[in-house]
Every structure is written in structure tokens, then in C-alpha cells.
Design a protein around this nucleic acid. Sequence first.
DNA 1: CAGCCAATGATGAAATTGTAACAGAATTTT
DNA 2: AAAATTCTGTTACAATTTCATCATTGGCTG
Lengths: 241, 241
Amino acid sequence: MADRKSQRVAALADALGEHRVLHVRRAAELLKVSEMTVRRDVANNPASFQFLGGHIMLAGEREGEAPYELGLAANQHASAKRAACRHALKHVARGDTIYLDCGTTLVHLVEMLPENADVSVVCCAMNVAERLARRPDIRMIMLGGLYHPSTASFSGNPGLETLDQLGINIALLSAAGIDFTRGATCAHFHEVPVKQKVIGLAQRCHLVADRSKIGVQKPAFFAPMSAFQSLITEEGEQRVK
Amino acid sequence: MADRKSQRVAALADALGEHRVLHVRRAAELLKVSEMTVRRDVANNPASFQFLGGHIMLAGEREGEAPYELGLAANQHASAKRAACRHALKHVARGDTIYLDCGTTLVHLVEMLPENADVSVVCCAMNVAERLARRPDIRMIMLGGLYHPSTASFSGNPGLETLDQLGINIALLSAAGIDFTRGATCAHFHEVPVKQKVIGLAQRCHLVADRSKIGVQKPAFFAPMSAFQSLITEEGEQRVK
DNA sequence: CAGCCAATGATGAAATTGTAACAGAATTTT
DNA sequence: AAAATTCTGTTACAATTTCATCATTGGCTG
């Protein structure tokens, strides 16, 4: 009986893995038990499931709990990041190929891209790619390689070589630290080669970040401010050259 | 006026970007309007928001709406696929590097991998990668390139070149068609180069699929049955050489 | 400024959801 | 095999959500 129960719980987890959200009634049908039993199963496994007004979802998708280690950073300054992206969006034109950097800033830009914008997006991060995958009207090119949970991004030579085959019009880079004299830095060294190569190849580069990054310096340096056309923050755009 | 409204909608989207889910009441407080107005805003933007029993969440995380076109296929034969994966799992040993093919079959295997299994997983599909990203104990290598929504996978030369840098012990391939005389086929031609190169490089290859695929033939041929150590289905493993 | 219109708020009835209590099944223990 | 225990389904009722309706507000136009 503990068998039956755990089997049901597993089946429910499976179903949720595919549907993301399930109404209690529907779950009861699928599992061929009463609604009440489903409710009890859910209540007994708060670690796995979560109730939300008649619907069941996986607990993991709860507030802030992204599968990445980015979780914490993601929520901070989110509206500032969004605002910065809104400003950055002006630089994207029809037909462009753009590079979106890893981090939690530029994911917001994906949702702002107008429908049928006819843009190709190059990225190297799972969180960005996940959003892009929801947009069949956008062509996505992913730079693969070894996965780094800390940034939800990939690194490696073949990914860098992919860039040789691309013509990037606009590169939108993010940074964890921006110092006007020293330049742009990030937290992890594996990000550096991709950023630098993109900077070298793209027609125009912009640094996109919320203002909390200004004055900060992180361990991995990747570009002087002169590498960028502008710095774009929630307050708008400013020349840096 | 329409200004006020769209501003509210944007603010709501922002708030949801941070919280993922918001109770109507809480949203009403945040936006400083009545609950009813929030409800109306949500109802007027079904493309952006979704109601879930008193809670608001961003659309796109909606039921059944996987971001991939795989949606339909995903549910069919799901338990057969899971069973097949359970059998396939026996071939994975500590320290192995394994290749997981694209499709809806082998995603199930990811969750079955024991914790701290010390395995490296090579993949080329978003749906597989998404699950792997939730597993910090697994090393993931992604073959990047151009994204194909039809299979949620990537293709391209640099991805293929990544394979040259890897030593794959076990390759688990899936197929949309299995014909014992003709061999294994899949639905999309862009999958073929990756599959073939993996088959060429891996120490051992197994074909993993539910039995509904047997006797079926799809347009893109990628390997004769002799390429595989065995065929693994929900009924277990069978030699094919 | 009267009048119109859209937007918002308030109210309450209807529908849905959450939960406790009990009774019947299934399973395990004695 | 009987008893005890756990699990499940049913029912009833409380709490909450949903929605239609109408009153009120605020802005705009003539």
C-alpha cells in the first residue's frame, strides 16, 4: 500500500513533468482515484508538489526557485533590469542578428522582442535559451560546450568557433561589475572567452546592466569601457567612449 | 487612460517576473487598485497572464504548453518510454560519459540517474538539457548550433566538432522508426549528422524506443541495426546484431 | 459646465475549492 | 480468521473565488 501510494506520487510527478500544471480533477482522472486522494497525496508531499487554487504544480517552480544557481540574483533589481532591457531594445532592428549574454539581465529582453521581429539570437545560457525556445518566430543559435551551473551558461572552444560562422550586428553584454576606469568584469572566468570573442566580432556592442553594478569590480575582467558603444541602465543610455 | 491601464499591466508583468505567482489580493495591493480591476486586466491580456484559482502567473507556463513542438508526442507512450529508459539505465556506470539523443524518450532517463552518479552527459536537445540543468551533480556538455523547434534540438558543424573532444562510453539513441531490415530512421534530416557522428565515436550504442516505433519507417535514415549493441524497449533489451 | 464615455470600485449571488468527519475497503498484525 | 490499522471515497459544509451587475469616479468633448 505504501507501494500503491508512492507509485501514485511518482505518476503524478511524471504527469506534472509533462504538463507543468494540472487541475486536481484532471489529476484524479489520470490517476484513477478520487480528488480527495489526490489532495491528500499533494498535501503529504509538500516537498514535491504545490497547491495553487485547485491546480497542482511542481514545488520546484515556486517563487524564485529557478533550476539555476542564478536564483538569488534573478529577483534582485528585476525591474531595473527590465527597464534597462527596454532601453536596449531600441537598438534591435528587423533582420538583425543579436548576441544576448548570459546572466539574469538579458532574459527580460527576450520577452520584449516584438512578434515576428525577424531577428536571430545568439546565446550561450540556458535561461536565455529556454525563453527563446518559446518563440518560434525567432531563430536561435546556441553556443554549446560544458555547462556551468553558476551562470547557467556553456563554455568551450567549439562554441567559440560557432561565432566565426555568424555575422552579429548587435551584441548586448552584461557585467557583474562596471568600473569606469577599469572596465567591465564578471564573476566567473569561464564567461570571459565568449564575451571577448563576441566583442571582437560584433558590429556594435552595448553593456546592459542595472546601476547597482556601477562601481563594483569582480574577479574576471573582460573588456575596457571603450569596447562598448554605450552603457545601458534603467535610467537610459550613456556614451562611455 | 489607456496609458494608466498599460502601465498597470506592465507593472503587473514586472511583479510577476519577480514573484512568479501572485495572489489577486496581493497584486491589487501592489498596484493600488481593486481586486476586480486586477482581474479585468488579467482577463484582457490572456496572452500575458494566466489565472489559476485566485493566483496570477505568467502565461507560457500554462498546462500542456511545452515550449517545444514536441508537446503532442510527449505524452504518448510515456510510460513505455519510461520503462525503456529504466532498462537502458543498467548500461550506465559510475564515471561514464553518455550521450542522450534528442526526442521525448530519453528525457525520462535523466531523472532516473542516481544522485551523485558521477556521469557526464552529452546532449543536443533543449528538453534534455533543461532537465540536466536541474541536476548539479551531473556534468553536462551541450552540442550547440542552430535551434530546430521541431525536435527542440541543435545542429551544426561546431556541435559536431565538440564530439571530437569527448570520449563517449555509452550512446543512447532514439529513433522515430525502427525497421529490422532497413535500420533506424528519424523524422528530421538535421538530426542525422549528430546521430551518425555519435555512433561513429561512442564505445557502445544502444537504440532506445518504445515498441510502437517498430516496423515504422521515417524519411531520414541514420543507421543500420548492426550499428547498435542492442534495442531497448519497454519489454527489455534484445540483441540486434 | 453639462454630458458622455470609459475605467474603476463595490456588492452579492453562483460556482468552485478546501477540509473535516465518517464509513467502507484494503492491508497488515495478532 | 479476527482485529487493528491504514487508506480511500463520500458527503456535507465552510471558505474562497468568480462573475455579473450597478454605482461612482474621472477625464474628455462640444
